[in-house]
Simulated scan of single mutants.
Amino acid sequence: MTEELQKRVRVIHDLERAIRLWELLRDNAQRVVDETEAFPKKPEGSAETNPTVAKACAYIETCNASILATKERIDKLARGD
């Protein structure tokens, strides 16, 4: 294996590890959303108006965007671009 190929494989491995971490963080945030929707603290409020849920949803979107961007970068590295 050439040095350049070894470097790409290492970078891909690191990026895949980052994706797994983002997925864990995203799943944790999703758990907060699910629990809040299942057990609302105020009967008159809804999960959509809860600031904790709003922050968690925004964080989930950020994680999803990061995961997609990282997967695109992995594809480019795998192709050799």
Rank of each mutant, 00 (worst) to 15 (best):
M1R: 07
M1E: 08
T2K: 08
T2A: 09
T2G: 10
T2H: 11
E3R: 02
E3Y: 00
E3T: 02
E3M: 12
E4W: 02
L5V: 10
Q6E: 14
R8D: 07
V9H: 11
V11E: 15
H13C: 09
D14T: 02
D14W: 03
D14K: 10
E16K: 10
E16V: 03
A18C: 04
A18Q: 05
W22Q: 06
E23L: 03
E23T: 11
E23C: 05
E23H: 03
L24D: 14
R26A: 02
D27R: 02
N28R: 03
N28S: 13
A29W: 04
A29C: 03
Q30N: 01
Q30D: 06
R31E: 07
V32L: 05
V33R: 00
D34G: 04
E35A: 08
T36W: 09
A38Y: 04
F39G: 05
F39E: 14
F39H: 15
P40I: 04
P40G: 03
K41R: 15
K41F: 11
K42V: 13
K42W: 02
P43V: 13
P43N: 11
E44L: 13
E44H: 13
E44G: 15
G45V: 05
S46C: 13
A47W: 11
A47N: 03
A47P: 04
A47I: 09
E48C: 06
E48M: 10
T49Q: 14
N50R: 07
V53C: 01
V53D: 00
A54L: 01
A56Q: 00
A56I: 00
A56C: 02
A56S: 00
C57H: 01
C57Q: 10
A58L: 09
A58C: 04
Y59D: 12
I60M: 01
E61P: 06
E61M: 05
T62G: 11
C63D: 07
C63K: 07
N64P: 11
A65Y: 00
L68P: 09
T70F: 02
K71M: 14
E72A: 13
E72C: 12
E72G: 13
E72V: 14
R73K: 13
R73I: 11
D75L: 10
K76W: 08
L77R: 03
L77E: 04
A78K: 13
R79W: 04
R79P: 02
R79E: 10
G80I: 09
G80N: 06
G80T: 06
D81F: 08
D81M: 04
